[in-house]
């Protein structure tokens, strides 16, 4: 559908919106950025969460305190997380940005696309580690003690035990979390992007969801925005199916 500027007429245009979309360099840039942003964010988040979960499982003293602190970001809205990081790395007043600049590295997320992308990734990872962490700590607790003790009697050291026993047993959880991370990266980072970069500079951090909002509600190109929604919906359905496959595997492994 195409709505004329006065909203008086609607014309059915068939697949023209889709054709236009797939042909536009803006959209391709957005797809490309969304893809690598999501993948990097998902991998970094789960790696760090796994490290923290392993450490939490190992230490005895202060475990509760560490857990409470690492869980904190869950309470913080994506937008607020975005605002916090936008402040830290604000080229004019941000403390960390000043630190980076004092090292002689140029830093300005408002102008340099790569800086902006990095900042968005850091803010999203910071916000999401807690989620993966909760699940991994729970999964590691559920690893049968008898297996670990048997391995210990056989002389396996803690790191070895982690990699040969715990890790394979929590793989289904990791798989599930990977899917959840990707879903988070695709859909829930809207607030972070809006707070940190507003899709800029020059569309460098325009994820697919942010583009739907930008095109539809800011530039009022409802036709194109709706076509993008349909594409997003297909992606969402794909991931829900994947998620359920992941759940099935979780049940089968009895973790």
């Amino acid at each position: 559908m195409q709505v004329d500027p006065f909203g008086a007429r609607e014309i059915f245009v068939g697949f023209a919106n889709f054709a236009q979309l797939l042909g536009s360099p803006d959209y391709r840039q957005s797809v490309f950025f969304t893809l690598w942003f999501t993948v990097i964010q998902a991998v970094v988040t789960i790696a760090l969460a796994l490290l923290f979960a392993f450490a939490t499982d190992f230490v005895i003293r202060g475990r509760g305190l560490y857990k409470s602190v690492i869980l904190m970001p869950y309470a913080i809205a994506p937008v607020i997380s975005g605002v916090l990081w936008a402040f830290l790395f604000n080229p004019a007043v941000g403390p960390l940005a000043q630190f980076i600049q004092s090292l002689g590295i140029p830093w300005d997320p408002n102008r340099r696309p790569f800086d902006a992308q990095l900042l968005v990734i850091v803010a999203s990872v910071w916000k999401h580690i807690c989620y993966d962490y909760i699940f991994l700590v729970a999964a590691l607790l559920a690893v049968p003690q008898s297996l670990l003790e048997a391995a210990k009697l056989d002389g396996a050291r803690p790191v070895r035990r982690f990699f040969t026993i715990s890790l394979p047993l929590v793989t289904p959880t990791i798989f599930f979390l990977m899917v959840m991370n990707v879903v988070y990266g695709l859909f829930e980072t809207f607030g972070i992007i809006d707070a940190v970069t507003r899709g800029g500079p020059a569309g460098a951090t325009n994820t697919l969801v942010y583009k739907v909002y930008q095109d539809g509600f800011v530039q009022l190109n409802l036709g194109s925005s709706a076509a993008q929604s349909v594409i997003l919906m297909i992606i969402a359905i794909l991931f829900t199916v994947l998620q359920f496959r992941a759940l099935e595997r979780r049940v089968n492994y009895q973790v």
Binding site: L48, L51, A55, T56, Y66, M72, L84, F87, W126
Partner: peptide, 27 residues
């Protein structure tokens, strides 16, 4: 060694969580 390493990792993680909040408080 591993205990110290784990505490260091967790302290780093906790610091990474608290740092933005602390600077927000200072600001």
């Amino acid at each position: 060694g591993l205990t110290i390493f784990c505490h260091a990792v967790l302290l780093l993680g906790a610091a990474a969580v608290c740092l933005p909040l602390y600077f927000a408080f200072v600001a």
